[in-house]
Amino acid sequence: MWFKRTKEGILTSTADKKETPEGLWYKCPSCKGIVPTEDHAKSLWVCPSCDFHERIGSDEYFSLLFDEGKFKELNANLTSADPLEFSDSKPYPARIKAAIATTGLNDAIKTGHGKMEGKEVVIACMDFKFIGGSMGTVVGEKISRAIDYSIKNKRPFILISKSGGARMMEGALSLMQMAKTSAKLSLLSKAGLPYISVLTDPTTGGVTASFAMLGDLNIAEPNALIGFAGPRVVKETIKAELPEGFQRSEFLLEKGFLDQVVHRSQLKGRLSAFLRYLSGPVSKN
């Protein structure tokens, strides 16, 4: 048969040739450069040649921010109900079940507390891979309870946003999570505790129009898409091409909505520095 090799390979003997398993290499979607997956993870999932920040999830951010990656998770068992009995191409409960199965997460956010550079903090981090990081009741409730925990234990609160916005399948219940989380942030603010919002790619819709924009400090990773309306909707509205860099972190920094754009490799150090400044007039370090 034509595909059957009759001769040995040119340099290596066929028996010694190694298959390259999928996932051993990372190809950067921005510069198309190729790096070993292991090296890519070591560089915190940032492309070593072009600084493209790959989207990562709560597990990665928690390992990056908490000292030795150690933290205690809060309210891990909350899962979505189906108050609207919503069904499109598949029923909402089936969609949730599938998302839990494929991601190993219970919903689009994880919250936990632990030490960051030795200081106790509460961190909430959204997961884009769980139904586009959409905010339904579980996301709103877990954020609210994490803020309650912050207030009760007098700890700073950090929230890493990564979301397409409110979750349609929970209708107005999702919308009201914007209100609920903002209500809790008003209490955190009254308690005089710092809230740092970290906006990552992408942060849009109802998340931008609530907690993501309400940090004492709003900081973003480089080149993250951040906006209220998505770029496609804006484009349809103005019926023209969007300017280069529109709705990216650097654009928002220029327009006055972010305090800083921070490279992922600097994130932990910078967050810790901010919290030291905000700890009061006399430095404890």
């Binding site: 903002s182 209500a183 942030l185 609530s210 907690f211 924009m213 906006g227 969007l242 529109f246 709705q247």
Partner: peptide, 20 residues
């Protein structure tokens, strides 16, 4: 309004600020 200038001037921030 989902316009270009609305985004430039922080539609998300404006709404969020009102909520809190």
């Amino acid at each position: 309004f989902p316009g270009l200038e609305a985004e430039e001037r922080g539609q998300g921030e404006a709404i969020a600020r009102n909520l809190i």
